[in-house]
Every structure is written in structure tokens, then in C-alpha cells.
Amino acid sequence: MEYIEIIGAVVTLIGTIFLFLGSLGLIRMPDVFNRIQTGTKATTLGTMLTLLGIGLIHLDWAGKIIVLIIFVLVTNPVSSHVLARAAHYIGIPLTSKTVVDKMAQKPAITVKKGDKLKEED
């Protein structure tokens, strides 16, 4: 009985370390898209592991924990995908290390609006 609580606490600790690394990547990465990459991946697994550890400590809360884990797993990639598309659409510049940009070759729909937003920023 006590061992499973200690295992749960250690799983929670590992999850929070991933959360910390994700936000460290948010500070260190050079442009918006790399920040989205590190942020999404690390926070998804970090939150899942943290909640799983809490669920191992309190086994009778398992139902809500499962719903919350599935919710985070489904919605977090969607919001990052939408944000990345919007950032490319309004013309946020990529970092100078970028090798290839296949998306820039397709014709934009309304170029004027994006240019205006970029100058204001």
C-alpha cells in the first residue's frame, strides 16, 4: 500500500521535471515554431504523468483522472497546430537556421492583411 504511493509521488516528480524542461525550451528556442514544438510535447507528457501520479496516490479518483488525461492528450496538439498555422499565415518570420520552407511556395490568399499585421508587431 505504501509502495504504490511512493511510486505515484515519483511519477509526479518526473512529470513536473518535464513541465520545467518544456518551459525552459520556451525561453531558449529561437523562433515561434520551435517554441511550439518543445512546449507542446513536454507539457503533454508532463501533465499526463503528473495526473497519473496523483491517480496512483488516490486510487478512488481514477475516473476523473482518466477523463482529464484523455482530454489533455486530445486537445493539446490541436491548439498547437492551430496556433502554428495562424503564426505562419500572419507572416511571423522563421529563424535564420531554417533549411527549407515548402509552405511559402503556395500562393497566399490575402497577402495584404498579413503584411499589415507583421509591420505593426
Binding site: L19, S23, G39, T44, G46, T47, L51, L68, L83
Partner: peptide, 20 residues
């Protein structure tokens, strides 16, 4: 967009914080 990403990650981290 940087600010919106920071906000998004802050809320997901807060979910873990509320769990603890």
C-alpha cells in the same frame, strides 16, 4: 503568437498544479 503560446502552456501547467 509568443504570448499566446506562453498563455497556453501556463494553463496546461496549471492543470498539473491543481492536480497536486
Amino acid at each position: 503568437v509568443d504570448r499566446v503560446i506562453a498563455f497556453d502552456i501556463m494553463t496546461v501547467t496549471s492543470i498539473a498544479l491543481i492536480g497536486i
